[in-house]
């Protein structure tokens, strides 16, 4: 691994740099599910005994910032992908706490040069502190 990336990993990985609360509005999660084409009742019917937000709903939420304030600017970042890890159902009507940290930093080198990938992870917890899910946003930065 490149020395500068190793240095960034040591300085920034697993250091929480943002915290934000999110109200999970039942009307929003139902509409979200409908627009995605969901057909399972537990996402569409607020009276369903297992009513919950669709699994990828959390991927649409973002913290106040996606990178630490002192993270170096290599170039222009682009959205390279998203991942969600579901640990427990997200119940509409609840308020979540989201904490963000950098989960991974790595590079790939192509014909056009080195690209830096940064994975920002937003961890979601319910009011009781139960860890519900992780939402990863992967950015790729082509160096100037």
């Amino acid at each position: 691994m490149d020395a500068d990336i190793e240095e960034l990993r040591e300085k920034f990985l697993d250091q929480a740099f943002d915290e934000k609360t999110f109200y999970v509005d039942p009307a929003v999660t139902i509409e979200y599910a409908r627009l995605c084409g969901e057909t399972a009742g537990r996402f569409l019917d607020k009276d369903h005994p297992d009513f919950q937000a669709p699994p990828t709903y959390l991927a649409s939420l973002s913290g106040r910032r996606s990178l630490p304030i002192d993270f170096p600017r290599f170039g222009i970042g682009m959205d390279a992908g998203k991942g969600v890890e579901c640990l427990n159902p997200v119940r509409p009507g609840s308020t979540l706490t989201g904490r963000t940290h950098l989960h991974d930093i790595y590079t790939k080198t192509g014909r056009s040069g080195r690209m830096v990938f940064v994975v920002s992870r937003l961890e979601f917890f319910d009011e009781g502190g139960l860890h519900l899910a992780n939402s990863d946003s992967r950015s790729v930065i082509r160096e100037k």
Binding site: Y32, C36, G37, E38, T39, F43, P54, D79, V84
Partner: peptide, 13 residues
């Protein structure tokens, strides 16, 4: 992109 991701999950369900 998150809507595309939602389509994928809807397909699975």
């Amino acid at each position: 992109g998150v809507l595309s991701q939602g389509y994928l999950v809807a397909m699975i369900h």
